[in-house]
Simulated scan of single mutants.
Amino acid sequence: MSRRTEQHPDLTDPRAGAPFFSTWRVGTPERQWQTVEAIGRTWERRPWPAGDLLAYHVYVGDDGSTLMHYSQWTGEQAYESFVKVHRQERVDEIDTAVPGIERVGLGRYRRYRSRERAAGDTRTPGQIVTVRVDFESGMEGRREEWVDLVSKAMDGDPKGHAGLVSAHFHLSTDGGHVLNYAEWESGEAYDRALAAPASEAWERVRAYAGMKGSTGSRYEHALGLVPD
């Protein structure tokens, strides 16, 4: 069966060969939490759909309208099998409980590298921040170099990133962008990092050739589902 967990996902799980992120737009804060509960009830009433699904987590956006979904699959084929057999009945039940959900899109990724939680760090992340960085056409091969620059900039700024618990960099399988999933101690800690003066290393990150732009979003972890 499926059961709820309050634990945040382990994004470094080596079994997760196909991490997926998707976004739903539901309109209001009240509907955000109604949808979270509808997802929880729908999944808890059914068997866990496949051993190849490691975990499924839902996040409430600070914008009062969106939900982010993060699922860990062993491979893309396992997800395609789930879509054929199990997905639609879950979608129908959730839509009956909360009509009018807009499913914005699904992103497929591979995790490239992480700044992992330090040994002995027991903090529970108070805010999840995702930053999507888009690259110009033909620049997909330089995304790894850009992520490496970001990692070096973070290592050189321990004070400014004192509130950072971990950061996980994902490359979209379509070659177009990088998605950083970062766990912060709190929203205030993230605000302090944003307000800190930029070092030369961060200026190199921001001026990297081929970058088109970036979009950041803030979330609260709302629901975790794992096999029982």
Rank of each mutant, 00 (worst) to 15 (best):
S65A: 13
S2I: 07
H221R: 11
Y190T: 04
S172P: 05
V129G: 08
G17L: 04
E144S: 13
A78I: 00
D155K: 12
S81E: 10
S137V: 09
P9K: 10
E200T: 11
S2T: 14
R115C: 00
S166R: 04
L106P: 01
A182D: 03
A198L: 11
P125T: 03
V178F: 06
E220L: 10
T130W: 09
T42E: 10
G105L: 02
H221W: 10
G156I: 06
R108T: 02
V104K: 07
G126T: 07
I101A: 06
A18M: 03
H69A: 10
E30T: 03
V60T: 14
E185F: 00
E80T: 07
R115M: 02
F169R: 02
W48H: 11
R4A: 09
A78Q: 12
S114Y: 09
V226K: 11
A196Q: 12
A193Y: 13
P14V: 00
G213W: 10
W202Y: 13
G120Q: 08
R15T: 00
K84L: 03
T122P: 00
K212G: 11
T5S: 14
S166E: 04
F21Q: 03
P14K: 01
V91K: 10
P19S: 14
E185P: 03
I101M: 06
E203R: 15
G160F: 07
T215M: 06
W73A: 04
E203A: 13
G107F: 07
E145G: 15
R25K: 06
G163M: 02
Q34E: 08
H221K: 13
V165Q: 06
A18I: 00
D13A: 01
A153L: 14
D121C: 00
G163H: 11
P9G: 11
G61D: 05
G163D: 13
R110G: 00
E37V: 05
R218P: 01
Y112T: 02
S2V: 11
S71E: 13
I128R: 11
Y190Q: 12
A78G: 12
T215R: 12
P9H: 09
W24C: 01
E116T: 01
F169P: 00
P125N: 06
G175S: 04
D157V: 15
E116D: 05
Y190K: 09
A38G: 11
E140Q: 14
Q77W: 01
A118H: 02
D191T: 13
E89R: 11
Y70T: 03
E102G: 01
T35F: 12
A55R: 13
A182K: 06
Y181M: 05
D155W: 09
A118D: 00
E80M: 08
G40D: 06
P47F: 15
G216S: 15
R108V: 00
